[in-house]
């Protein structure tokens, strides 16, 4: 059983919700990223989504764009991201890691090389935002062979026809995008999200987690109540940005990730 599947199954048995923070690998540097990942686990993260920085992140809002720019200024490439995962794995062999990003860095490395190196480094899943199922026919079988989960997004605009294809090819979990827009935008109509997530859960056995626009314990609890968990990206990356500010006392890693601890507490309280 994959680490992702195992983790989510355990949470389901416990009646708890998955908390999945997202951070950009190499923001502000490799060493900080690995330290932040450990801190996130200590704060109660169940799975970590690690962003592969890309020069043209056309599905991301300003906060994650700036995070990627900070990482790129350090020259962070996909191979460095994999090194960070390997380093994290030296101390943590339990927390699943999902690489999230855009396709071109994988194209540049070559799919076969990427899959084999990702497996060796200890990656558990990949989520490529600009690779719909219809363009995944090369990467998908390679990931399957290496038992890497491939996670796809479902959006408010996803048609029923598309939905069945996505459910059929996904493994690990399904990422429901709560809103029409880019990462970090404000959450909109709860009722509509609930209806969509309920319908989605009727179409798949896989856990469904909700992301985009979740920024505090309240929004996290509201989304977790209708799903299997939540992803917190921009709100965390915004705090990590504090590590790059000059001319002031830098926040500690725990200060950067305190939001995740708060959300964990909120989620577990609601669950009880």
């Amino acid at each position: 059983m994959s680490r992702i599947k195992q983790t989510l199954a355990t949470l389901r048995e416990q009646g708890r919700k998955a908390l999945i923070p997202y951070l950009v690998a190499g923001d502000p540097g490799a060493e900080e990223t690995v330290a932040l990942m450990h801190q996130l686990v200590a704060d109660g993260a169940d799975i970590i989504e690690l962003g592969i920085p890309f020069s043209d992140p056309s599905s991301d809002g300003p906060v994650i764009q700036l995070g990627a720019e900070r990482a790129l200024r350090k020259g962070t490439g996909l191979r460095h991201v994999l090194e960070m995962v390997a380093e994290f794995r030296q101390q943590d062999n339990n927390t699943p890691i999902v690489l999230m990003g855009y396709l071109n860095p994988l194209e540049a490395m070559g799919y076969e090389t990427f899959v084999s190196r990702a497996k060796t480094a200890g990656v558990d899943g990949v989520l490529i935002v600009d690779m719909p199922v219809s363009e995944a026919n090369e990467l998908l079988p390679l990931c399957r062979e290496s038992e890497l989960d491939v996670i796809f997004l479902v959006a408010p605009t996803t048609t029923d026809k598309r939905l069945s294809g996505i459910c059929e090819h996904s493994s690990g979990y399904i990422y429901y995008v709560s809103l029409k827009g880019v990462t970090g935008a404000a959450l909109s109509d709860h009722g509509d999200i609930e209806q969509r997530v309920t319908s989605l859960r009727g179409n798949t056995e896989l856990p469904v987690v909700v992301g985009f626009g979740i920024k505090d314990p309240d929004s996290a609890c509201a989304m977790a109540a209708i799903s299997d968990g939540v992803i917190v990206g921009s709100a965390l990356v915004e705090r990590i940005a504090g590590l790059s500010k000059s001319g002031q006392t830098l926040p500690t890693y725990a200060e950067c990730t305190a939001l995740i601890a708060d959300i964990r507490a909120g989620l577990d309280q609601t669950a009880r």
């Binding site: 056309s58 599905s59 935002v129 600009d130 719909p132 363009e135 605009t157 996803t158 598309r162 827009g181």
Partner: peptide, 14 residues
């Protein structure tokens, strides 16, 4: 060629 966009835009492109 092909279609490489985020899921939110897939329905519009189709």
């Amino acid at each position: 060629g092909g279609v490489f966009v985020g899921e939110t835009l897939m329905a519009a492109v189709e």
